[in-house]
Simulated scan of single mutants.
Amino acid sequence: MPEEAPAQQASGERVPVDVAVGVLIDGGGRFLLTSRPEGKVYAGYWEFPGGKLEAGESVEQALRRELHEELGITIGAVQPWRIEVVDYAHARVRLHFCKVFAWDGAFEMREAQQMAWNTLPVDVSPVLPGTVPVLRWFAEERGFSGPTHAAT
């Protein structure tokens, strides 16, 4: 998530910052969540990994770069999934969620974050607000009717 002050439109509405988000899913259907590192907004909250698009980057290019920078992996095919706009106190973000089923390399937590493979309900908390819709989407896809995460 962005750390700087968000841009403003003439109407006073904050311009969303585009963020590529990787929803890594392993062969058993588990998905990867990582914790936000110390020093960042929402440090310690769990989220799907990714980061801001740089000037001229596509969502896929940004996702490949971010997952290599943060996790040390090289991802395979990227499947664009859904887009969600989330208003945080510090920024408005447009999250481009992409499913990823294949990657190469060993996971390295290059920002001293933690990682956890999860199913529903997730067993890590607190969960970043922008992550909650994805857990609902997984529940819909998988016919899961229980709570998707612990209340934060």
Rank of each mutant, 00 (worst) to 15 (best):
M1F: 01
P2R: 07
P2T: 05
E3P: 06
A5H: 08
P6N: 09
P6F: 04
Q9A: 10
E13V: 00
E13D: 10
R14C: 00
V15M: 01
V15F: 00
D18I: 00
D18W: 04
V19R: 03
V21G: 03
V21P: 03
V23G: 05
L24P: 11
I25C: 07
D26I: 15
G27F: 11
R30E: 13
F31V: 15
F31K: 13
L33K: 15
T34S: 08
S35Q: 15
R36C: 03
R36V: 11
E38Q: 11
E38F: 06
G39M: 04
V41W: 02
V41Q: 05
A43H: 09
W46S: 12
E47R: 14
F48A: 02
F48T: 10
P49L: 07
G51K: 08
G51S: 12
K52G: 03
G56T: 02
G56W: 05
G56A: 05
E57W: 03
S58Y: 01
V59R: 08
L63E: 15
R65P: 02
R65F: 09
E66S: 14
L67W: 01
L67G: 03
H68Y: 14
E69T: 12
E70M: 02
L71T: 01
L71C: 09
G72T: 09
T74C: 15
T74S: 14
V78N: 05
Q79H: 08
Q79W: 11
Q79K: 05
P80R: 09
P80T: 04
P80F: 05
P80I: 01
W81G: 11
R82W: 07
V86H: 05
V86M: 06
D87M: 06
H90I: 14
H90S: 14
A91Q: 12
R92C: 01
R92G: 00
R94T: 08
L95G: 06
L95A: 06
H96V: 03
H96Y: 03
H96Q: 08
F97R: 14
K99M: 13
W103E: 12
G105W: 13
A106F: 03
F107N: 06
E108S: 14
E108Y: 08
M109N: 13
R110V: 13
R110L: 14
E111V: 15
A112P: 02
Q113P: 04
Q114F: 07
A116C: 11
W117T: 12
W117H: 07
L120C: 12
P121Q: 09
D123Q: 12
V124Y: 12
S125P: 07
P126T: 14
V127I: 13
V127Y: 11
G130E: 11
T131Q: 14
T131S: 15
T131L: 08
T131F: 08
R136N: 11
W137L: 09
F138M: 10
F138P: 10
A139W: 08
A139M: 08
A139Y: 03
E141M: 06
R142S: 05
R142W: 12
S145I: 10
S145C: 06
S145R: 15
G146R: 04
G146H: 09
G146V: 10
T148Y: 01
H149Y: 14
A150G: 05
A150Q: 13
T152Y: 15
